[in-house]
Amino acid sequence: MWMKKKALANELTGPQKFFAGLVLLIIFIIMAVPMWNAFVVSTSSLLSSTQSGIKIWWDDFSLEGYGYVFKVTKLFRPFLNSFFVTTVGVIIQVILSAFAGYVLIQKDLPFKGAITSFVMLTMMIPGDLTLISVYQMNKQLHLLNSYMGLIINGLISGFSILLMRNYFTSVSYSLAESARIDGASELRIFANIYLPISKPGLATVFFMEYVSKWNSIMLPATLITDQDKYTLPLMLKAMIMQDTSTSGTAYAPQNAIMAAIIISMAPLLLIYIFAQQYLLAGMSLGAIKE
């Protein structure tokens, strides 16, 4: 909206504009061409896709790569699995992150500093350190080979809590304070004042966590040995990282690998395009105050 309001003459000069456009164009090409290449290879025939070099245009269009991933690799079920656990998990995550974020904006809340550190430390723990015990934990909680396990592991991240908190800090605190004096309950203040104006923040957390959960590999690999509960990135990684050191033979053709990549990216891209306008507003990190 403000774009239109902007002063008419307040813009870059002609040559500057040209230069800016050129820089953007170069960046655009550098960032878009590899993906375009992946798309072209995914829609090429097997023979054409195994040729070395970079493909910018089709010389033999074919959808057999997509046929392969659905028929032979059977990606449909993993796709559904991923979609299901990611969506459910991230919705819960948004709610819980909003809760926690709200807690962290309370003025003179006892132990607030400690809580913040408690949250932030979790962002620094290397996975290798917890690898063994996370498995034992899941085993004790009977979360192995279950959708529940896939949903619960990685349910909360420090990052999304901090993101939510930062968004809440842009909301006027006095508004909540006056409502509190009027006798409104905490839950009511949270639900009626904070949540409605925090849509962009919620959307951002939703999206960022969707991306990371959708792509997560190590935990699902640990938790899931039932093939009917495999998730998409597991299949994708198995396709890309084929074990070349053994004398075994099975391997997926290049066009199928690229097709799998495109398929795995598509939902994220769609959500991104739809949510773009909210993301812009929601990504304002500001300062992490304590």
Binding site: I125, I152, N153
Partner: peptide, 21 residues
Amino acid sequence: MLLPVVAYFLVFSYYPLALGI
């Protein structure tokens, strides 16, 4: 409101962390 988050982190981050150390 913080309870689920604390519980989660204790179980899935801090307990494994302690065991790892």
